[in-house]
Amino acid sequence: MNSNSFAAQTGATGEGALGTVLTVLFALACGALAANLYYAQPLVALIGDDTGLSASTESMIVTVAQIGYAIGLVLLVPLGDRVENRKLILVTMAANVVSLAGLALAPWLTTLFAMMLVVGITSTAAQMLVPLAANLAPAAARGKVVGNVMSGLLGGILLARPVSSFLADYVGWRGVFGLSAGLIAALGLAGLILLPRREPHGERSYAVLIGSLGKLFVRQPVLRRRGIYHAAMFGAFSLFWTAAPVILLREPYNFTPSGVALFTLAGVLGVFAAPVAGRLADRGYTRIGTIAAIATVIAAFVAALFGGVSMAALVAAGILIDLGVQANLVFGQREIYQLDATIRNRLNAVYMTTFFLGGAIGSALSSPVLEAFGWVGICVIGIAMPAAALIYFLLSDESG
């Protein structure tokens, strides 16, 4: 049975419809791919101890993955406007499996960082699946389908930290990435059977396609502003979730990886922010919603100032940070997707590249700041990042 005949039986015939089976596959694959970027966040101390990486540079493991993701967003995702989508996605997922296996077996630090970079680059297959789902879904159900797929992606992001922390107690950090390789391989095999072909109609050369990304950032003020707002927010997010597990493994908490897993479950509540933010945006509350989302993250880091001695403060901060960041992401996506329906892949690539670079900066800062200035230093920078975004937002001429 080929992919097109199976798609027909599941209700996903060409670009006109998308069945339940395919929708679930899209959501699971997006979640599993996005999770690859976050497994390492609570494990940096374990990886550092195992590989001899110094405490001040441990967070570079997360940074490299996020830089890789930004590279993939720029160089791979726009290919969805030129290359047959099914082939592009499956080849990228296969490369992701190989890089995850290489990461799990990496004997040297150089190999570890190289494989982590490739894991980040190839995990952008998730951002190829989202627009493909939108193209396959009927217009009347497109919002619902994309929302379901994005819920899977956000679920993967939010569950990655507790899952990796829990599994590390039993299989070690290498086992976490080995299991991820197996999961992506299984989803890739399912995609080989289920994913229908989609041939794009873009006629631009690859060089012109990539070159247009920078022009979009310059010429689209809403895209530029929204990217910068969320870069600051995602930087604060990465800063917190890379540093918090480290302090939980130390005095006075002395958590095990499983204990850290329970703590990181607090962030899973952030998934509930997406549908609420979407409804608020649909009702015209984007401006006030953006202000509330950014202010929530500022308040979270104020609460986190007490996290060195109060577990309740840390848990509250984790919940609020994820709620604020996920809500702001949805507000931003809604704004940029209204700019030009014909270039949504590239708008999405520019938006996500911008804020993932912000996330890379946040994770890169976490270890050196934690070692030099302690948890208070983390919180001060965590307050400053969204505060700068809020000032920029209030000074801009954005009315939405």
Rank of each mutant, 00 (worst) to 15 (best):
I321D: 12
D322W: 06
G324Y: 12
G324F: 08
V325S: 06
V325W: 13
Q326T: 09
Q326V: 11
A327N: 04
A327L: 14
A327W: 08
N328G: 13
N328M: 12
L329E: 05
L329W: 11
F331I: 04
F331K: 08
G332D: 13
Q333F: 15
R334K: 14
R334T: 15
E335H: 08
Y337R: 05
Y337W: 10
Y337K: 07
Y337M: 15
L339Q: 10
L339D: 01
D340S: 01
D340P: 04
D340H: 02
A341L: 10
A341H: 14
A341F: 01
T342A: 14
I343C: 11
R344D: 05
N345T: 15
N345F: 10
N345H: 11
R346G: 09
L347N: 03
L347E: 03
L347A: 03
L347F: 00
N348F: 06
V350L: 08
M352G: 06
M352F: 10
T353K: 05
T353H: 06
T354N: 00
F355K: 03
F355N: 08
F356V: 02
F356D: 01
L357C: 14
L357Q: 09
L357R: 00
G358C: 05
G358V: 11
I361A: 14
G362T: 07
S363P: 07
S363W: 02
A364H: 09
S367H: 04
P368H: 02
L370P: 00
A372G: 05
A372Q: 12
F373W: 10
W375T: 01
V376R: 13
V376C: 05
V376N: 13
G377T: 12
G377W: 07
G377L: 04
I378R: 01
C379Q: 02
C379G: 12
V380Y: 11
V380K: 08
V380I: 12
V380M: 06
I381D: 01
I381L: 14
I383W: 02
A384L: 09
A384E: 03
M385D: 03
M385Y: 12
